[in-house]
Each structure stands twice: as C-alpha cells, then as structure tokens.
Design a protein around this nucleic acid. Structure first.
Length: 236
DNA sequence: AAGATTTACAACCGCGAGCGA
DNA sequence: GTCGCTCGCGGTTGTAAATCT
C-alpha cells in the first residue's frame, strides 16, 4: 500500500546488543585487554562505536558485574551515599562492589528517588539535570574517577588524597545534642577557629569523617579508614 | 482477553577533562 | 597555546516487560 500524505519514518530501533555481539566483544577484550575502545570498535569486527563497546563491557559484560536485585544493605548504602554525594553515580557505585554507575543511577531513579524524597521536594529530570551541570562546572575535590586503574587501587589512592586534603582540617566538633539518622542531618559544627568547609550540599567532601558518619564502626570493618584517624578525629 | 499505562533498565547523547602532537 | 582524539560521567530516551483497567 502507498503511504498517503506524510510518509511514516521507520521508528529508530534502539540498538540492543545481541548475544553474538557480546561474545565477540568479550572474546576481543579477553584477548587484547580493555582500553583503546576505538581500536576495539575497528578491529573486533563489531559494527559498534568505541563508546558503545566500552559501555557494554563496563555495564554488562565485565566478569565482576553483580547481577540481580539490590540487597537491603546496598539500598541503604545508596541512600546514604546519595545524601552525601549527590548524583555522583560513579563514586557511589565505587562503594558497591559489582554494581555499575548506570545500575545505581537507574535503581535510584526507578526505586529510591520515589521513596526518599519527601513530598513536594522531588525534582523533575530537567531540574536535576540543571543541578548536575552546575555541579560539574564547579571545581571538584579529588574524586575516585581521578584514579581509574581499578576499584581497589582507586579506593587506596582516594584515601591517600583525602588524607592530604584533611591534613589541613584540624578543628571541629560533633554536636552531640543533635540526633541524626538516615536523613543524614550531619551534626557537625565547625569550631570557631575552624576554617574547614564541610559543604555537604554544595560540594561533597568524602573524608574519613564522612565514613564514620555514614558507616560508624563499619567503616573499620570495610577498611575504609585507619583506627588512628578515628582516635585522632573523634576523640578530643 | 486485550488495550492502556506504568515500570525497569539498557543504551544513547552531549559535555568536559586529560593528554599527546 | 591549541587542536584533535579518547575516555568517563551523568542525564535522557526508547523499548520490553509487568501491571492495571
């Protein structure tokens, strides 16, 4: 049949990866290693761009990816970290072994966003996008993405960088008159001669102190901070 | 049972940073 | 200094699956 009037354009199908493409990509990366995604695109025979290959590997094919639903602990951790870090999905995902930034982001948008933001406070996608772009314009303190080699190396390097950053922060106290819970109304009050800025809303600042506030003594269990720092920072 | 609506998530897009030439 | 390339990040979109009416 002839189309009448406006010709209906074929709807662009989302270019989903086929199992055979996955096999090709996986085999190529196992043979040649990660990185140089343009070369992967050219040499693997896949009719995919480098970006697409990278994304597919990172979010789906990597052997250490953990599939399946989020545990209660993971959900709880995402909520806490999002309160602290905002939409820094790669940083949040870095704390969840086997989870990707894309997965965490999707999970937040489809599950947790509804649950966590109080009525009237939820942002539209457009608004959150604006926020994100503003955040990106601001200069960052060290982030885990600055150490892209591996998650564990990144963690170590990040902690080192944080040590350096916090070496200038010597004086603050925790306001014990306030209670706080999962909403993370951090009861930190800088002391009078403290010029350190804990701008949790404006610029996330992941320090060992944050670890304590987030995870309490679990921070030790996870090996995220050193006991001497705990003693030095919390106990006057 | 069937169509409409909602949900979940894989994939794409645009932007900015880093780096070498 | 700047240009081009690559990579990584976070927002957005498209679609399959699930749920509702």
């Amino acid at each position: 049949m002839e189309s009448k009037g406006l010709e209906l354009k074929p709807q662009p199908k989302k270019n989903l990866w086929k199992p055979e493409e996955d096999l090709v990509l996986k085999a190529y990366i196992e043979a040649h290693g990660e990185g140089n995604w343009e070369a992967v695109s050219k040499n693997s025979g896949l009719k995919r761009g480098g970006k697409s290959c990278r994304l597919r590997w990172k979010n789906y094919l990597r052997p250490d990816i953990k599939r399946g639903s989020m545990s209660e602990e993971e959900q709880d951790l995402i909520i806490r970290l999002h309160n602290l870090l905002g939409n820094r999905w790669s940083l949040i995902a870095g704390r969840l072994p086997g989870r990707t930034d894309n997965e965490v982001k999707n999970y937040w948008n489809t599950h947790l966003n509804k649950r966590c933001l109080p009525r009237g406070k939820r942002k539209s996608n457009i608004d959150s996008n604006k926020d994100h772009q503003e955040t990106n314009k601001k200069s960052r303190t060290t982030s885990i993405s600055d150490f892209p080699n591996s998650t564990s190396n990144a963690e170590t390097a990040l902690m080192e960088a944080r040590k350096e950053e916090r070496s200038n922060i010597t004086d603050y106290r925790i306001d014990e008159t306030q209670s706080f819970d999962y909403d993370l109304d951090f009861p930190i009050v800088p002391t009078e001669n403290n010029n350190a800025a804990f701008g949790f809303d404006e610029e996330p600042f992941m320090t060992s102190l944050d670890s304590i506030l987030l995870f309490g003594t679990e921070a030790f269990d996870y090996g995220w901070l050193e006991s001497n720092l705990h003693a030095q920072w919390i106990i006057p």
